[in-house]
Design a protein around this nucleic acid. Sequence first.
DNA 1: CTAGGATCCTGTCAGC
DNA 2: TGCTGACAGGATCCTA
Length: 285
Amino acid sequence: MPELPEVETVRRGLKSFILSQKIQKIQVLCAKSFIGQPITGQIQDIRRFGKALVIDLDNGYSLMIHLRMTGQLIYDGKERYAAGHPSENFIDQLPNQQTRVIIKLTNGTLYFNDQRKFGFIKIIPTLEVKQDKFIQKLAKEPWQMTAAELHAKLQKHQKSTIKSAILDQTIICGLGNIYADEALYKAKIHPARKAGTLSPKETKNLLTAAKQVMEKSIASGGSTIRNYVKADGTRGNYLDAFANVYHKDGQACTRCGTTIVKTKIAGRGTHFCPKCQQLKEVSNA
DNA sequence: CTAGGATCCTGTCAGC
DNA sequence: TGCTGACAGGATCCTA
């Protein structure tokens, strides 16, 4: 579920609550959700690599966390901070049916919830974080990448759709299903276009759009389908307020009024405006 | 090498 | 109501 903006929101929030606290005990409720041996140690830093979080301890080890589709991290201390998969009912009571790992800290408790068990926490030596198989393969994030670089990469994917290409974290890092649809809409590119057919200008527009939609989301605390409670009690509402196509099928395009449609591309639900995002070049000079 | 589909797992919702 | 299939904000593995 969480894409780059949500994971960044989790990182910033957690950092403000748990930095320099000590992990006193890790309780694993679901073996599949935890790789390695539970450890203790003081939290030195919280970093993000694409959609993965890394919590560094003072003993040379780190916790690598990937929330995948339905993971949540909830800190319960003097205040409660919850971010990740947006399902309020999961965080009313802690622990609950979806709680997979419980991390006891000096001044509170960190819960790792994950309905579908796709996510995980993995213990690895801090020095080996960058050699991790997943992290090592990640492409640059949109802010570090030039349009020329992206264009060159897309040339290698002549048969793949652009939607599929930008979901590939080894091509460009950070986009997920929501921001892929939103970025393509903003750049006026049909999701089924072949990745290798984008012009340099279209590629540049897409890269800019990707940065913009994610920046906007980070600024508002990450998106949510329903809502979730943040540290200060406010609720994330990115989708309601800012999404133009995601989960907007049947509604009017805010640019042209055409009805937004939903199809399946790259095995994923895909939303777009059939008028703003045409498959063929518009042939009116 | 790329590309598409199945797969991991649990829960929810639309449609019979 | 009760069942059934489709689907879900991700990534990997398997196959061609």
